[in-house]
Amino acid sequence: MARIGELDLCDRLSPTIPVWVTQIAVGLITSGAARILRIGFDLVAGGAAPFALIYPAIMLATLFARAFAGAVSATVMILYIWYYLFPIRNSFRFENGAGPLSIGVVTVTAIITIAVAELFRRAARRATQERDREIADRDLFLAEFDHRMKNNFAIVAGLLDMQKRRAADPATADALGVAQMRIDSIARAHRHLYRGGDQPGMVEMRDYLGDLCTALSEALFLRGGITLTCDTDEASVPRDRAVSIGLVVNELVTNAAKHAFPGRDIGAILVTFRNVSGGGWIVTVSDDGVGLPEAPVVTGRDNGLGGRLIEAFARQAGGTLRTDSDRTGTRVTLELGA
């Protein structure tokens, strides 16, 4: 119904073409198309039901170009059929008293059809306008919400940065810096969510992870020989899962930057995001550092906060973690089902 409200040719062609010209043209086109079909029907049915095609013709004309176009189509069709087909060919004369009655009935039903089609067209137009207003209101609300959320994220990040600068204990300053990066990861997912993609509630992972890796590279002061590379497939992921994936990547890259290259100025960290045939995705964060310690890492209360957060974020994303490490580096894989 809303689509019909968008098909008003008078609005679409105005002011280039005057409304009345459009209406007459549409009336003539629909009546002409009906006459062509009438010729085809006559070859098969031999003139049966001469007025049958009037009603679809005038209905289409009215829906596309308003009531006047329907009236033009109806007038042309009735006069054409009256003169050429009914009741005496090539004449406006009637054989008997039933002829005028037939023409009168067709005229009245044509007027009723035009009225019904016009009422329907106006209802569809009102529905379309109401939908457009709702969309405009929604976009305004989302823009306001987006603006406020950006301000909130900026305030939180600013407070963390201020506390980090004032912290005398290096460990405290480091913890505040990590928290600031986590907030930034969530904020970036939010920004990509409200960029107006074709799929509401979805985040484009190529843009999001590329943006996140750029920010991490700058925040972790990865310069010179230590590089961070992001290689991702195109994929749209629901907002909540995208945020969890970004937080996992944030923690893993931060850990690699801090612990994978002790005493080294050269190294590489690679983040990949791949689509899996059959559904799902695989996220990997790998480095060519010294690898994990040979002693097993104990999970539980004594385990580091970063490790527990990674596991928690992976569960939130609906994925499972696998870690492979040796002297040539560490590779952490997050497998995500569809």
Rank of each mutant, 00 (worst) to 15 (best):
A34P: 05
A57C: 11
D324L: 12
R66A: 08
G280S: 00
H190Q: 15
D233V: 08
E6G: 07
T320S: 12
H259C: 07
D326H: 08
A179N: 10
E95V: 13
D11H: 09
A117H: 03
G300V: 05
V332N: 05
R308T: 01
I103Q: 06
D231P: 02
E335C: 01
G47P: 04
E6S: 14
D265K: 11
S325Y: 03
L43M: 14
G280T: 00
D240T: 06
V253L: 01
N275P: 00
N152H: 11
L160R: 01
A175D: 12
R93W: 13
R35P: 01
L142F: 13
I183R: 04
R93F: 13
S236N: 13
D231R: 11
M77I: 02
I186F: 03
D265S: 14
R274G: 06
V105W: 09
I29Y: 09
G196S: 07
L60K: 08
L160N: 00
A312W: 06
V237T: 05
V285R: 00
R138E: 15
L334K: 01
M181G: 10
S277A: 15
A48F: 05
I58K: 01
A215R: 14
Y55M: 07
D184S: 14
R121Y: 09
G40F: 06
G104V: 07
I81W: 06
T330L: 03
F221P: 00
L292K: 07
K258P: 02
G291L: 04
R315M: 05
R3L: 15
A268E: 03
I266G: 03
D42H: 06
V298A: 14
D288M: 04
M77L: 14
A61G: 06
A69N: 04
A312H: 11
A257R: 02
G246L: 06
M1S: 11
T75M: 14
P200T: 12
R3F: 15
N303P: 00
I186V: 15
I112E: 07
M1H: 11
E251M: 07
P15V: 12
A215N: 10
P56Y: 08
L212V: 10
I103T: 03
V298R: 11
G280L: 00
R301M: 11
A179D: 06
A67Q: 11
P100L: 03
T254K: 02
G27W: 09
N151H: 09
G197L: 13
D207Q: 10
R188H: 10
G307C: 02
D211V: 08
P100Q: 03
R35Q: 15
R191I: 12
T22S: 06
I29S: 13
R122E: 15
A57V: 08
I111L: 15
A48Y: 04
I58H: 03
V116G: 03
A167T: 04
A338Q: 11
S102L: 14
A175Q: 13
L309S: 04
A167Q: 01
S91T: 10
A257Y: 03
W20A: 10
F51A: 00
S91I: 08
R223S: 14
K258W: 04
A215M: 13
